[in-house]
Amino acid sequence: MDYQTSCLLITYSPEIIDGAPLYVSSNCLPIKACKYEPAGHSFHAAALKLLGLGEQEDTETDDRSVSSDDKSQDFSAASDTFSSKGKKKSGSQQQDHYALLGLGHLRFLATEDQIRKSYRDMALKHHPDKQASLILAEATEEAKQAKKDEIESHFKAIQEAYEVLIDPTKRRIFDSTDEFDDDIPTDCAPQDFYKVFGPAFMRNGRWSVNQTIPSLGDDATPVEEVDKFYNFWYNFKSWREFPHADEYDLEQAESREHKRWMERQNAKLQEKAKKVEYARVRTLVDNAYKKDPRIQRRKEEEKAEKQRRKEAKYLAKKMQEEEAAKAAEEERKRKEEEAKRAAEAALNQKKLKEKEKKLLRNRENPSAQSCCTGSCREPLFSVRR
Rank of each mutant, 00 (worst) to 15 (best):
D96R: 02
Q73E: 13
S68V: 13
D69I: 14
R107I: 09
V66M: 12
S76A: 11
Q73H: 12
T111N: 07
F82K: 06
S76N: 12
K89A: 09
S83W: 09
A110D: 07
K87F: 03
S79F: 10
E60N: 14
K87Y: 08
T111A: 04
L101F: 00
R64H: 12
L103N: 01
F108V: 01
D74T: 12
E60S: 14
K88D: 00
S83R: 05
L109M: 11
H97W: 01
H105V: 05
L101C: 01
E60A: 15
T81Q: 13
S67L: 15
V66S: 09
G86P: 00
S65D: 10
S83D: 05
Q93S: 01
K88R: 02
L100G: 06
L101I: 00
V66T: 14
G86A: 03
H105C: 02
K85D: 06
H105Q: 04
Y98W: 07
S68K: 15
K88H: 04
T59P: 04
E60I: 14
F75P: 01
S83T: 05
S67R: 15
D74G: 11
S65C: 08
Q73Y: 10
L100F: 00
S68E: 15
S67N: 10
Y98M: 03
D69M: 14
F75V: 08
K87P: 06
G104D: 11
Q93A: 12
D96V: 06
D70E: 13
S67H: 10
E60T: 11
E60G: 10
G86N: 07
D69N: 13
E60Y: 15
G91R: 00
D80L: 15
E60Q: 15
G104A: 07
V66P: 01
E60K: 15
